[in-house]
Every structure is written in structure tokens, then in C-alpha cells.
């Protein structure tokens, strides 16, 4: 498998604080990769570095080309980033969020894709005209995911999709992600606190600690790792 996304010695800082101290990781085409780690380890910043929301140093290669510029450029290259804390367009309606998700795409299949989203999220059609900001937290999280999928991304980046969701919904969201991955070959980079479920769906995972990669391997390897078990899985 060739790598769709590659980070080599990526650094990022917020003012004086260096949040990333040389992250190197690889997301193979068609795979699901998880990024784990304690609070403040730099998981969110890693995704932000990829989509250009923070200034970064080092090399980021996407589909064989160096990735440059801000979030608009990343979106146009085919990266859909669902940021930490939802990232819906709160003032627009549900349908408008979905239409806007397809902003970088040409062509007429937008309506068909909105219907496809309704298959995954059956509540969407009846709430189409509701302002996104008035949806419940979980619904907004699902809408953010649907909005990201509307762009038909080559790479989907999710920042803690489970936050604030009922366990059942979390299962559902991750099963949707697996389905998309298996059936459509969607490549996914997911940051997740729920390590158990992340390791279930991901093929490989990286554990970050204070801005560096402390550990990486296949999900099976990490599940078997003493330290990971003790710090993240609790058994």
C-alpha cells in the first residue's frame, strides 16, 4: 500500500509553546489510522497541521505532492477535516451545511449525495431546514461528519468524533466509518479518546506524547502492549 498522507518531522507552535516536536507518520491509501494520546499531547494540532490551520514546519506530502497553504487548499486537495468540537456552520440550515460540504466539487450529483447521507443519518431529511446551531450536540457531530463526506474526500480526518455522544451512537458512527472504508476505500485519520473502539476500527495507530510519536504499530500490537493497556485501556 502506498501512503496517501505522509508527515515527516512536522513541527508546530502556538506562540512560544511548541505543540509538535517532529511528528513522523504515514496514512496508507485505503486504511484507517488512529492517533491516540493523553490530553494536550498534540493530536488536534497534528490534524490542524495537515489541514493548514496552524503554521507548520517539516514535510507533509499528500497523494505524492507537498501540501501547502491554508485549509482552503487542503480542502481542495481532497482532505475533509471534521475539527474538534463539531465544526458545523451553525447559522446555516442542515441542508445548506450539506450543500456547502460539496463546495469544492463540480457536477450535479450533490442531490443524490444528500440522499445518500439520509441513508446513513435517517433524521436528516425531516430536519433539513433546521438551523444547525440548534441541533443537539450529537446531531451536530453527525452533521459535521455528513458534511465532510459530501465533499467525497480522499482523506477524512476526524477529531474525537465520539465526544458527547451516547455509546450506541458512537458505535454507529464508527460502523459508518468502517463501512465507508471497506466499501468505498475511504482513507481515514482519526483522533480518538475512546481507545478501545479506535483500535477496533483502525489498522494502525500512533500514540503521541508531548508532541512526539511515543509508540506506533498495528492495532493488534498496541492492544497487546503493556503500557498502552495500562494507560489507555485500563486492564
Amino acid at each position: 500500500m502506498t501512503a496517501l498522507l505522509e508527515l515527516h518531522a512536522v513541527e508546530a507552535r502556538y506562540g512560544p509553546l511548541q505543540a509538535l516536536r517532529g511528528i513522523t507518520l504515514e496514512v496508507p491509501e485505503g486504511s484507517i489510522v488512529a492517533v491516540l494520546g493523553a490530553n494536550g499531547a498534540g493530536k488536534t494540532t497534528t490534524l490542524r497541521a495537515v489541514s493548514g490551520m496552524v503554521k507548520r514546519d517539516g514535510e507533509i506530502t499528500f497523494a505524492g505532492k507537498p501540501l501547502r497553504g491554508g485549509p482552503e487548499a487542503a480542502a481542495r486537495a481532497g482532505i475533509a477535516h471534521v475539527p474538534e468540537g463539531r465544526g458545523t456552520l451553525t447559522e446555516l440550515s442542515v441542508i445548506e451545511n450539506l450543500r456547502l460540504g460539496a463546495y469544492t466539487r463540480r457536477g450535479r450529483s450533490v442531490r443524490a449525495d444528500i440522499e445518500r447521507m439520509a441513508d446513513y443519518f435517517p433524521w436528516i431529511p425531516e430536519r433539513g431546514d433546521q438551523t444547525a446551531g440548534t441541533l443537539s450536540g450529537g446531531e451536530q457531530q453527525m452533521l459535521a461528519l455528513a458534511r465532510a463526506l459530501m465533499s467525497r474526500p480522499r482523506l477524512l480526518m476526524l477529531d474525537e468524533p465520539s465526544v458527547g455522544l451516547a455509546p450506541l451512537i458512537v458505535r454507529e458512527i464508527f460502523s459508518i466509518i468502517s463501512t465507508l472504508n471497506e466499501q468505498e476505500g475511504l482513507t481515514v485519520l482519526v483522533v480518538e479518546q475512546d481507545v478501545r473502539i479506535a483500535l477496533e476500527v483502525a489498522a494502525t495507530a500512533y500514540v503521541l506524547e508531548v508532541g512526539t510519536v511515543a509508540l506506533s504499530g498495528t492495532s493488534a500490537e498496541l492492544r497487546g502492549d503493556e503500557a498502552v493497556r495500562r494507560s489507555y485501556l485500563g486492564y
Binding site: 480542502a75 447559522e91 460540504g101 465533499s151
Partner: peptide
């Protein structure tokens, strides 16, 4: 409208 009301999210969709 998106750019006016949610600029950060608007940039993320391109």
C-alpha cells in the same frame, strides 16, 4: 453566508 458567519469552518470546506 458561510464566510460571513463561520469563517473558520467555511475555510475547512474549501
Amino acid at each position: 453566508r458561510a464566510a460571513a458567519t463561520n469563517p473558520a469552518e467555511a475555510r475547512l470546506v474549501g
